[in-house]
Design a protein around this nucleic acid. Sequence first.
DNA 1: CTTGGCACTCAAGCCGGGGGAGTGCCAAGC
DNA 2: GCTTGGCACTCCCCCGGCTTGAGTGCCAAG
Lengths: 336, 336
Amino acid sequence: MLEDRRLAVLRAIVEDYVCTREPVGSKALVERYPLGVSSATIRNDMAALEEEGYIAQPHTSAGRIPTDLGYRAFVDRLSGVKPLSPAERRAISNFLAGAVDLDDVMARSVRLLAQLTRQVALVQYPSLVQSTVLHLEIVRLSSTRVLLVLIAATGRVEQRSVDLPAPVSEGFVTALRSRLLTAIIGQRCTDLSGRMEGLAEQFPADERPSAQAIIATLLEATVESEERRVMLGGTANLARYRDSFSTLEPVLEALEEQVVLLRLLGEVSGQVSVRIGHENPVEDLQSTSVVAAGYGRGSAVAAGVGVLGPTHMDYPGTMAAVHAVAQYLSRILDEN
Amino acid sequence: MLEDRRLAVLRAIVEDYVCTREPVGSKALVERYPLGVSSATIRNDMAALEEEGYIAQPHTSAGRIPTDLGYRAFVDRLSGVKPLSPAERRAISNFLAGAVDLDDVMARSVRLLAQLTRQVALVQYPSLVQSTVLHLEIVRLSSTRVLLVLIAATGRVEQRSVDLPAPVSEGFVTALRSRLLTAIIGQRCTDLSGRMEGLAEQFPADERPSAQAIIATLLEATVESEERRVMLGGTANLARYRDSFSTLEPVLEALEEQVVLLRLLGEVSGQVSVRIGHENPVEDLQSTSVVAAGYGRGSAVAAGVGVLGPTHMDYPGTMAAVHAVAQYLSRILDEN
DNA sequence: CTTGGCACTCAAGCCGGGGGAGTGCCAAGC
DNA sequence: GCTTGGCACTCCCCCGGCTTGAGTGCCAAG
């Protein structure tokens, strides 16, 4: 009973603070929310909540603001992800439908998510890991240089140019191409290593190093690029919350690092996950929250999608948007 | 004589303001620069310069700051692009050398330029226009869907998936591929339209619409993507100049639009060009300056590279950096 | 446990008055 | 005629003190 009201108070504080961005006092609270008790009672509850670390006051004699722990409690007690309105779903669907290729899908998703949440959006390219090889092309650029183009079933295309240790003929390239094709077409990208083993040895000694170089690059491309790219959008939205950050610079800097973005989307699962403030692994981003979810073909998670914003964000709304976009991305991936 | 000194005064004002970012007064000027006259004389010159619109004062009884016109005069009188130090050149060269593919070259260039200038860097992908077709791959994803991969001599790879009006066989794809290849390999991307004319008619009626769809997409890819992508980096540097802008938001927003970025790099030539404040075509960016240059294979300009920052930037240094990176990009393109 | 009352605290906003940097103008000097 | 030192003037900026008001904690009564 008492616990219930305290929770309601916390919830009200979070909601109020998220929308006004100003410390909220006991009086304002009883006026704006149907808590059914007087401000004095709320004050007692607030003192208790502060004691437990859920809220804090910026200065004595100011209202309270939620702490990271407070947001955490708030998020944990949400009753499931609130569904979007049919109109919103239709908008998303329409927005993503017109994409011409994978790059376009990614770009549109980022834009969409940034617009929906009015925050910074992150979309990761589908991993090659769960995907199979659709096609491989080897183009001879010169006698000592070839270009590899690897096409994955997800629609992702990886290209690498390789400098060869020795000149090779067009015939060698053709031969290598056909052997590689039979070896890896339709295989999982993660299995390539075993599949291509010993393949270089089938070539005469003078061509062997070149074959090895190409195979090595191919492996490198599948492994290294595994989850390399994350697309980013909506950074302008950060500026709108300028006063939430002492300074924008470190945040923007962190967001320019692919490595950082990858860590943010790191351990996503199918569910929507929320990282609040200090829970965040990246130091420069510990004044922000990240809402992320995985998407992928069927149950396998191919990559992550998420949103980054100030800790005082609209969690329910953001979670709903991220969830929805992840769903649509999964569907698009399936259709391909 | 008099004109000479006024110019020297303007130059000193620009230099001082660029480095201190504070309105500069007559007294500070004679102390810090060897102008050889008294502050009273400088005051007269300043009054004249203000009359002519080169400088302005934020308030009465404050120092002067250069106007856009003042910067323009300053930039126009620069004696050529100042060369970078050998050490810097070596650093650039090393930095760009390790790139594995075109994407990587672009990414490294952006990063490099942002670091060198401590501002926002823009690098445009080389246009297909001046380039020739290196290879085309058509992959049959399903009976009614194919993936086109077009590889240009610049190293750029364009991919498109095409939904076909009717199911096609693997044989059709093979046939179309070989005909397209003989038609367009080695041709300029701009000439494809003529080259592929009538090609669809060589196929039986049931396959013709599919062939047409594929050819149309191919054309679309070469035309539309002609100068589509601009890579952006160093946005964090904008935050460092926060007080130079009333608000960062519109600037960041503008920078998220590819269209805007293209306009910024619009009419670049081989020379370094400078757009100062209001000279800028994009309204939201009229409080910024853009220093840009073209790069490309030999004399042909394939794309642009540039830097965006506050109007009070270090023009000589920025111009030198942009120039150098453009040069190196051209060289890399040539080597490919 | 809740509630109204009350004293207390402290950030924010509002003067008002130096202080200082910088200007414009003027009259004298080269 | 340009340059220069002098001088009065103008405002921005900073500082300290004051008031105001929102918000709190505590207490005693219901």
